[in-house]
Every structure is written in structure tokens, then in C-alpha cells.
Amino acid sequence: MRMHKVNTAVTLGAVALLTAAMGTASAAPPAGRTPHPQPAHPVIVDCVWHPQVRPADFMIACGDGNSSLSSLRWSHWDQGSATASGVNVVNDCKPYCAAGRFHSYPVTVRLDHPQPWKKNPRVQHYTQMSLVYTDGRPDGFDRVVTYSLWN
């Protein structure tokens, strides 16, 4: 019986300590600090709705993954636009996409037209992406291709 009382007391003490520790961890941040600071410059929103700043890679074709950007090196990123060089990796879908091969094409990427992001209107996000193919391009693509980015 005495051992049962000791175990109960130890368990209750551990619960109290754990509750106190969790209460401290979840307390509000100190006055004047926000838990998630807003980016100083516009962002680009990825396929899973995460805001990105100067990403090294970016999926263009979220639905099937048949076009992406890789090895991005950003030379400019400000309130009005952003510029990078990198590679557009594109599936040729020949004879069909599941059997197609991926090819890499050097590109210059430009992001433009920042607007408030619907998910968080205090954050500006780029709404347009232009790719300029600098050495070859996928069949049927113009030298400059412009995409509207999701909101």
C-alpha cells in the first residue's frame, strides 16, 4: 500500500513538472516580438504553399513534376523583381510522359509583379515568372516563356 502511494506521488510530481515545462514552452513571445517575422522582400510560393526566398530549386509543373528549375543562383531579389540563372529540367514526354526522358536547358529566370499573397496578405509574392532559354530549348517552346504563378 505504501509503495502505491509513493508511485502515485512520483507520477503526480512528474506530471506537474511536465505541465509547467510545456506551459513555459508555449507561452506567448515577449512583447514587441512576433513568432513569425514577415519577409522583407517578396517570396515565391512553392507547390506545397511554402513561401521561399532565393530557392536553389523550384518545381514549375506541380501536378506531374515534368518541369522544374535547379541550380538557381540569384543575382537580384528586391521589392519589384528577382533574377537568377539556372537550369530548366524538362521531360520530353516521348512517346508519353511516363516513358519520357528529362533534358536540361540553361535559363535566366525573372520573377515579377509582386502582389499580396492570399494565404497571408501581409506577405508579397511574385505572381509572374519568365524563363529565357540561353542555349537550346524544349521542342515547341519559345525562347522566352512566361508563367503566371499560383496564389
Rank of each mutant, 00 (worst) to 15 (best):
P39R: 02
K94I: 04
G80Q: 15
G63E: 12
K94F: 04
G32D: 03
L131A: 00
A61I: 01
L131C: 02
Q52T: 12
Y96C: 01
P30Y: 11
Y147R: 12
V10D: 05
C97S: 01
P55A: 06
A61W: 08
G23N: 12
G32H: 09
S71P: 01
P121S: 09
T19M: 09
H113Q: 15
M3R: 15
R122Q: 14
V48M: 07
P42E: 02
Q38F: 04
Q128N: 03
T134Q: 06
Q128W: 07
A31R: 12
F141H: 13
S81K: 13
H4K: 14
A56F: 04
R122P: 01
D46T: 10
D78Y: 11
K5F: 11
L69T: 03
T19Q: 00
L111F: 12
H113M: 07
A21M: 13
Y96R: 12
D57M: 00
G136M: 13
S67W: 06
V89A: 09
K118H: 12
Q115E: 12
Y133E: 07
C97P: 05
M3C: 09
D46V: 04
D135L: 08
P55V: 04
G80V: 13
C47M: 01
R33E: 14
P138Y: 10
N66W: 14
C62W: 07
D112F: 03
V109P: 00
R143Q: 15
T24Q: 14
P114C: 02
R73P: 00
Y147L: 09
R2H: 10
G63D: 13
K5T: 13
K5R: 14
F58A: 00
A16P: 01
M3W: 11
V48I: 11
Q115R: 09
H103W: 11
V109I: 10
P51W: 01
P121W: 04
L12Q: 03
A27I: 11
G32I: 08
T146S: 08
T24W: 15
S71I: 04
C62R: 05
A40H: 04
S75E: 13
D57F: 04
L12R: 05
H36I: 14
